[in-house]
Each structure stands twice: as structure tokens, then as C-alpha cells.
């Protein structure tokens, strides 16, 4: 594994990434089930708004948002370091991978900012 690949992994270590990916995955699944349960019975604006005004829902949502950030980074890192590589396309591979990772980092940052804005802004 080349250096540029190693330094862009979230935990700088495969075992750490493996564990973070699983813990965040479980949090995201729990949140997905929570939202599905909340919507399943049908919602109107007052009840939906009241749900998201509760502190624990805001905290749980932020937890899911931050989990998404880590989970997406690790997952997309795994995909990019398999397909956009120096071995497959020479230095172009490194350029495309790092560029993609910068775009992904920006996307994750925007998701987190928007999420916080939605959760605490209204």
C-alpha cells in the first residue's frame, strides 16, 4: 500500500477502520429503523416537528450524521483505493483518487453542516 493511500484512511490503520465502519454501521441502521418506525404510521407537520424538537432525537440524529461522515469516508476510501490506483492507471490513478477524495471530503462537510443547520436551525 502506498503512502498516499495509507494517510487517507480514516484510522490510519485497517483494524481501526474496520471497527469504526461496523460501529457507525450499527448506529446508522438503528437510526434508519427509528425513522422508518416514525414515518410508518403517517406523520403531519406538528407531530414531525415535535419529534425533532426533542433533545434525544437531535442528539441521535447528530450521532447518525457523524456516523455517516465516517462510514462514507471509510467505504468510499475502500472503493477508490481498489479502482483508482497507480497500479491500474499509473500516476493518473493517484491524481483521480486524491481529487475524488477531496470532492468527497467537501461533500461530507456540506452534509454535516446542512444537517446541523436543519437540526438546530428551525
Amino acid at each position: 500500500m502506498d503512502m498516499v493511500t495509507a494517510v487517507t484512511s480514516l484510522g490510519r490503520n485497517g483494524l481501526a477502520d474496520w471497527l469504526i465502519q461496523r460501529v457507525t454501521g450499527v448506529i446508522l441502521l438503528a437510526y434508519f429503523l427509528f425513522i422508518a418506525w416514525a414515518i410508518a404510521g403517517g406523520v403531519d407537520y406538528p407531530s414531525w416537528k415535535a419529534l425533532f424538537e426533542q433533545t434525544w432525537v437531535k442528539v441521535f440524529s447528530l450521532m447518525a450524521l457523524l456516523s455517516l461522515a465516517a462510514h462514507a469516508w471509510i467505504g468510499l476510501w475502500a472503493v477508490l483505493t481498489d479502482y483508482l490506483t497507480e497500479r491500474l492507471m499509473g500516476s493518473t490513478g493517484n491524481f483521480l483518487r486524491i481529487t475524488s477524495q477531496l470532492v468527497i471530503a467537501l461533500g461530507i462537510f456540506i452534509y454535516v453542516v446542512l444537517g446541523v443547520q436543519i437540526l438546530w436551525g428551525y
Binding site: Y45, W48, F52, L68, A72, L76, G107, Y111, L114, I118
Partner: peptide
């Protein structure tokens, strides 16, 4: 990861 843009937009619309 891409679809999350749609879901966050929908969450924004639902709570605004």
C-alpha cells in the same frame, strides 16, 4: 452517499 443529498434536502423541507 449521493442519495443522501436528496434525503437531507427532504429533511430540510419537512422541518422548515
Amino acid at each position: 452517499f449521493a442519495a443522501m443529498a436528496f434525503l437531507i434536502w427532504a429533511l430540510d423541507m419537512s422541518l422548515r
